[in-house]
Design a protein around this nucleic acid. Structure first.
Lengths: 124, 124
DNA sequence: TCACGATATGTTTAATTTTGCATATCGAAA
DNA sequence: TTTCGATATGCAAAATTAAACATATCGTGA
């Protein structure tokens, strides 16, 4: 009641982003990189994952290097050469990281969605 | 157990950001603008709020215009002139918006924090 | 009616990201 | 041993964003 947010509210989209950084505020791992790791695992290829997500190989490669430098150990096992040119798979550590982030996300997704719906309701 | 994320995990900082946009993916209202609205309300001045948050007046002014254009009605009541130069306060709609966002945030903050702690625990 | 300080807004510059381009490396398979 | 396609990486170009700069407007109180 009261304020008429009518007509506009239904076109509002919610977004949120979770990420982690080191003490110097440098972004380490967030939704984008997490998604990329998952897709690399699925596709078995860095290039294929980039193509699908529409990121440039150059950029992604740089991002992945940052993550690995931060954690101090490889999340990816990269192979060059071969008739297929090479491939990339997650290491055991990489899989564990992705899995933990999956769990984290799952635990907040529903709460965020519910909170957003309540937010909209509050404005009506 | 297993993976040794030791030594680095304690320096990881969690960040998250919630925002809303229109259908064209243009950012409308998010944590930064929400904080700005709250501070304007508190200070009664756009300039004072910018100074405190370290944003330029120009940038903030542009942001606020975007928000109002999207919602279609004023969130702020601005006054120019007078010995004090002018002042800005939230309209009733503006207050309601801020309050709804406050509630929204409060409902997700704790869940995010808990989820993050579990994430770290999962990696150990 | 003059001065003052905040709001209003165009223009321009600087900083930051992202993209694009080029080129090298690698190694299994043909 | 030649080929092929993915990984590796520097560097320049382009695009996006933010900061700076410059003025104009406004209206109350002195």
């Amino acid at each position: 009641m009261g304020t008429k947010f009518t007509g506009r509210l239904d076109s509002i989209q919610l977004h949120y982003k979770i990420w982690m950084s080191d003490a110097r505020e440098q972004g380490i791992l967030g939704d984008g990189k997490w998604q990329m790791l998952k897709l690399i695992e699925e596709k078995g290829s860095l290039k294929a994952a980039c193509d699908e997500l529409g990121y440039t190989y150059r950029r992604t490669w740089g991002n992945l290097r940052k993550i690995e430098q931060f954690f101090g150990f490889p999340l990816l096992e990269k192979h060059r050469g071969g008739s297929d040119g090479g491939n990339t798979v997650l290491t055991a550590e990489g899989k564990r990281l992705v899995k933990a982030f999956d769990t984290f996300h799952a635990s907040v997704d529903s709460v965020i969605q519910e909170g957003f719906e309540q937010f909209i309701a509050d404005l009506k």
